[in-house]
Simulated assay, not measured.
Amino acid sequence: MHKRDFIDLRSFSREELEQILLDAEAIKSGQKDVSQVLSGKTLGMLFSVASTRTRLSFLAGTRQMGGHAEYLNTGDLQLKNRETVTDTAKVMDRFLDGLIVRMYDMKSYGSGREALETIAANTSFPVINALDDKDHPCQVMSDVLTIKEQLGPDFRKKKVLLTWGFAQRQKSPGVTHSMMSAAALLGMNLEVAFPEGFEPDEAYINFAKKQAALSGGRLSFSHNMMAAAEGADVIYVKSWKALNLSDEDELAIKNSVRADWCLSSRHFEAASQHAVYMDCLPSIRGEEVTAEVKDGPRSIIFDEAGNRLYMQKAIMNFVFEKIKAPHHIPLFT
């Protein structure tokens, strides 16, 4: 059976995403045992960008599934000395049973995805996207799990607002793109708010519009955070880089709209009575969100972070159950 990578949610069906969600729920409740799925397997974790939740949840998840994950910083490998991604991947293919990759450079949009695709094309094991410059599928699947837990079985009918928030640092639009893909495939009601100039990648917008029409979901866009917050059941704040602006123009726009794009309690006054606050972390109090909201009773950010462990296990179970254990080949024939 051919391997299955987990790189871009657009590559999956609604049924597959629903199965992964069900598995995560079963793993969390103890109804599904995955403690031996990775027995005897060694996974690499190739990271060129800092990580807390993704790194820790994969390390713990792999161990709890009977395997071993080895953290590999690109700065410690011969990639630092200009060894190619292709050569690196082919060597790793001789040693590892899977690879979890976080690799991107926001100065070169698309270069991270190109690297992941190169690795996937030159390995026989599953490759899992731990955030590139286009997608963050593991984070978003965990987010959907959290939304379902909070809103109940009819979560698809509830309004989820994913809003851009001011941040000094340039961040990947991966969460935004993956959330649009997941929501559209699953038939969710999603509104995405952002200042003019911070539009998501057109390819993801077109995919999400088409899939939402097929799934019965709802996808809308807004340039006004306050208006978009009206009636929201979830308000999720996430900053991302402007894809079509120079750094100078992006900074000028960000500074000019900062006051209007910091999520605060006044936005929740417009939301539904029981609306909750989400963000994937890290977030800076006073930038994307006020401390009052981030540390307040509506915040479920640490429950959201905790669900990363169960979702990583469900994803690893999904990709590894698709392949058979390699046959033992004799040394001499």
Rank of each mutant, 00 (worst) to 15 (best):
G61I: 07
D295I: 03
G216C: 12
S51V: 04
T62H: 03
E18V: 09
L190D: 11
M103R: 00
Y71M: 06
K238H: 11
G216M: 11
E196V: 13
L214Q: 14
R55Q: 14
C138A: 13
S299K: 07
G152K: 00
E288I: 04
D93F: 02
S108A: 15
M106T: 15
V175N: 13
F47P: 12
A325R: 02
R4Y: 04
G61T: 07
L185A: 15
F302K: 02
G216T: 09
Y310L: 12
L245I: 07
N189V: 08
F12V: 11
Q31A: 15
P153G: 01
G217K: 00
G306W: 10
S108D: 14
L245P: 09
E149H: 09
K28H: 12
V234D: 06
D135C: 10
S124R: 00
V276Y: 03
M65T: 09
V160W: 07
L263W: 05
G197V: 00
I20S: 11
D295Q: 02
D303W: 08
A208E: 13
R285W: 03
V127F: 01
R258D: 09
S272K: 02
C280Q: 10
M179D: 10
A184S: 15
K148F: 04
Y204N: 15
L214T: 13
R102A: 13
K32M: 14
F318S: 04
L243I: 04
S246Q: 09
A50T: 05
E15R: 08
A184E: 10
A242R: 03
